[in-house]
């Protein structure tokens, strides 16, 4: 791998939904992005800016348009199926129900997560050694989940499930962690706790991370790099040095300068006053 190449590279990535219909939407418009190893990147943008589409392309939920490339660890994974992308990429979704299986126990969920990137075989999925590992991974959350390994996940609260999803996404040490507004459905206090847990895990495991958020304060407070998306393009890309002393107002100014538009997304402006984030309904 070349020294100045990133851990994740996107080259000319576009995504068009409903091509040649009246509803045609360009969700991603020729995005080029280099994410370096151990970057903790926050991604911000209004509804329909393409944030979630970007994560979906990286995670292999759908491929980009022809010509676009997704390269991770120097390997072109553009056309691999989603479960093959997953050997490199852990993901926490906005909805706690997406990242965990309700009717299965905590240890069963953890077993599924631990086998990311490995061949699944015919040995019994949970054993003593693995249970110890699960306890070790769950104990730092401070939620007592390590004592409830045989509890059905459906009985946990949203915050507990999201914390569990976070551990599940990181336990097998993926190269890249995608956090897709993973605190958006939680109450403000729980959202704060889960965000802080995320930061602790990311720093401890040194995982390269991309976190989508609706909240400008969150985007500034966490991580070491910030990108802002608008109409499927990356319009602002700030390094750690550049964003160190920025305020939310500076970000709004930066947005207006880069997009040439007046900043008029109430959801973002409103959400700056409150760590609670509004659900994002974009594709």
């Amino acid at each position: 791998m070349n020294g100045n190449e990133g851990l994740l590279q996107l080259k000319g990535v576009s995504k068009i939904f409903g091509r040649a219909t009246i509803d045609e939407v360009t969700a991603l418009d020729n995005v080029n992005l280099n994410v370096h190893a151990e970057d903790f990147m926050t991604i911000i943008g209004s509804n329909g800016a393409g944030k979630t589409t970007l994560l979906n392309v990286i995670a292999g939920v759908y491929p980009p348009e022809r010509g676009g490339k997704t390269i991770i660890n120097g390997k072109d994974i553009t056309n691999l199926s989603e479960h093959k992308h997953a050997q490199y990429i852990g993901r926490v979704y906005q909805d706690p129900h997406t990242g965990t299986a309700s009717k299965m126990t905590i240890e069963e969920n953890m077993s599924l997560a631990m086998l990311r990137g490995q061949a699944r075989g015919l040995s019994i999925a949970t054993n003593k050694q693995r249970r110890d590992q699960f306890c070790e991974a769950l104990a730092p959350l401070g939620l007592g989940l390590e004592n409830r390994l045989t509890t059905q996940v459906g009985t946990l609260s949203g915050g507990q499930r999201q914390a569990l999803a976070l551990v599940m996404a990181t336990i097998s040490q993926p190269s890249l962690l995608l956090l897709d507004e993973h605190t958006a459905t939680l109450d403000p206090k729980t959202a704060r706790i889960v965000l802080e847990l995320s930061e602790v895990i990311v720093q401890r495991e040194k995982i390269t991370t991309m976190m989508v958020t609706h909240n400008m304060e969150v985007a500034l407070r966490y991580g070491n790099r910030l990108i802002m998306m608008h109409k499927g393009r990356i319009i602002v890309d700030l390094s750690h040095e550049q964003r160190k002393n920025l305020t939310v107002n500076d970000l709004v100014t930066a947005f207006e300068r880069a997009s040439g538009e007046h900043f008029a997304d109430d959801t973002i402006l409103l959400s700056t006053a409150d760590p609670d984030e509004k659900p994002d309904n974009e594709q």
């Binding site: 479960h83 997953a86 979704y93 997406t98 965990t100 299986a101 299965m104 699944r120």
Partner: peptide, 13 residues
Amino acid sequence: ENEQMVRGLGGNT
């Protein structure tokens, strides 16, 4: 139960 989760964890659904 949750096909999306299984794929996201590297399982071939």
